[in-house]
Design a protein around this nucleic acid. Structure first.
Lengths: 337, 337
DNA sequence: CTGTTAGCGCTTTCAA
DNA sequence: TTGAAAGCGCTAACAG
């Protein structure tokens, strides 16, 4: 592949390797116009491209960060990674994007791969099942920032959504337009902070409005198959809920599927709020009211934080950023009052 | 970060670096059970992790491939990259995923970055605006396989969809259910093979059925804004089309948007067929009939091809794979006959 | 069966 | 203003 190396251009330019190196690193200060020109030409005519791997080995810096997303099929993940990428590109870092696929095993393998590749730092939306490893990285002062999901009891840099507030706003909206029997459809909590936060926001808001959260209205599902069951349960209760808050996009999608199949009218029979935007939600019938995270900003800010951490790996103070969610009201909740 | 190096574990195990290296590369043949055990322990107790960058420099192989997708926000791109990733993981390759963002400039920068990083090969969904560079890579025997878009007049490995066939099937379907005035809504051809193929399939099929393709029914748009205009044009013709074939997902989405805003009934007033599945199309009202590419398979096969190319960089025969598209009939075309 | 040695391609003192 | 030399962490003959 890349045959030509620094020595070749040095020879051609009639200078030494080190001079070429100086040139490449833009340390022109002590270089004559002439040598400079000769080197430039030599590079052009040979088509020389530096081998960053050799460079990295020497300078112990790869200018590359690793990003582990939970599941690249989620719009959330791609949007976040765009933010990260934009920030990194601007600051001359490359990113290696890894898809953990909601699989702790894969997450672990990727973490190790990234370390082996000597990345300068890692942004990770963790599955929550590799806490020891993550903690160990912190101890070893590997620059690391968490996104999306936070780890209980571990101090780390991170940028997260305010999931409680997001759920609160959603429920408050439902209450405001007249709903009283509000159900929650969530993937199994599984110790995952985002889900817990949303659950908590849901409960709090009901209680704050003098309503008692009812266990029968709260459905935790382990698979999409269970969504069908849960929805059916809800609809067949003596007092069925008039609204469902779905706390992630896959459950939302599945719920809408099921409702559609069963010819259940949204929002007339049941109102729906989902989490996370996607370009499609506007096109649904009715357009879906959603709680939106600041996905792109999460990407931007996490990258920013990681790069500052890379510059101060020893810094003992960790920095946590919480970004508010924003409720986008469309038509899937109707207007009840 | 990773402080401990091979020498450290060698010392601890009381052997030389090379023996440790042998061990790591699983060349146990000539190694006593005992040394092996000692090395194992030393590695465990030091938490040693090999530096693949140093290794790569030496062996001139990174076991990493680069993937450049056109736009990561498209479901097509993520699905393809999943296929690539699955195949590569199984074969112990890592992938660096890059998002060209439909921007030739970015594509070029990424290509250069990947080369600088000494990737073993590249899979690229090219913008079609870097042909010289790409051709040059082939000349330099850089393993390269194209996906999605092929380059006219350049021989290369590649795996593509049979876009003509996809469009043909779509139009044939529309004809079969009684449509005669069929419009095409496509992004500007711009020399892009996929779009050309779909356009060609559209024309051919009309002609094959004795219908004359009409220029007024064929809309090439440069932006989403133009979609609105085009749709409006179509609807206000004296003889408006009864169906529109949209040749990519963004135009489809925008078209649906516009129709929805204008309260135009699909499929009663106008039938719609889109390209490319996404988890949402089932939920639309009506569910969207789409021409689907074998996205995951494109990923799988391109990765497979790249790895074989990596093993035979000199092979002069290029291999091109064309995968059929599949029409998924839902409800957005109605049944006219 | 294991150790010595010579690099991979680049950067970086330090000396000239 | 430029060059020589050492070395980043690892591998692969080759020798023993």
């Amino acid at each position: 592949m890349t045959r030509v190396k620094m020595e070749d251009v040095a020879k051609l330019a009639g200078v030494s390797k080190s001079t070429v190196s100086q040139f490449l690193n833009k340390r022109y200060e002590f270089m004559s116009e002439e040598t400079r020109g000769r080197i430039e030409n030599a590079i052009k005519s040979t088509g020389y491209q530096p081998n960053v791997i050799a460079r990295s080995l020497k300078v112990k810096k790869t200018n590359t960060i690793g990003v582990i997303v939970a599941n690249i099929l989620h719009y959330f993940s791609t949007a976040v990674s765009r933010g990260i990428e934009d920030y990194c590109n601007k600051h001359h870092y490359n990113v290696i994007l890894c898809n953990a696929d909601d699989n702790p095993q894969k997450e672990r393998i990727y973490l190790e791969m990234l370390l082996a590749k000597q990345v300068d730092g890692i942004i990770c939306a963790t599955t929550g099942k590799n806490n020891e490893l993550l903690k160990d990285l912190i101890n070893r002062e590997v620059p690391l920032v968490l996104i999306d999901r936070k780890l209980a009891g571990i101090e780390m840099d991170g940028v997260f959504s305010n999931n409680e507030q997001g759920a609160r706003d959603a429920v408050a909206h439902l209450l405001a337009i007249g709903h009283r029997r509000i159900a929650l459809l969530s993937p199994d909590l599984n110790g995952i902070s985002t889900r817990q936060g949303r659950f908590k926001g849901y409960r709090q808001t009901l209680i704050a409005h003098g309503l008692q959260p009812m266990d029968e209205y709260i459905k935790f599902v382990k698979s999409t198959a269970e969504v069908k069951e849960s929805i059916s349960d809800l609809l067949h209760m003596p007092e069925p809920p008039t609204a469902i808050l779905c706390t992630n996009d896959l459950t939302t999608m599945e719920a809408l599927h099921v409702l559609k199949q069963g010819n259940v009218k949204v929002p007339e029979t049941i109102a729906i709020i989902g989490f996370d935007d996607s370009p499609w939600v506007d096109l649904l019938d009715p357009p879906l009211t959603t709680v939106n995270q600041q996905t792109y900003e999460i990407g931007l800010k996490s990258a920013e934080q990681l790069l500052t951490r890379i510059e101060h790996p020893q810094e003992k103070k960790f920095h946590e950023q919480i970004l508010d969610c924003h409720l986008t009201v469309r038509k899937s909740c109707g207007i009840k009052n």
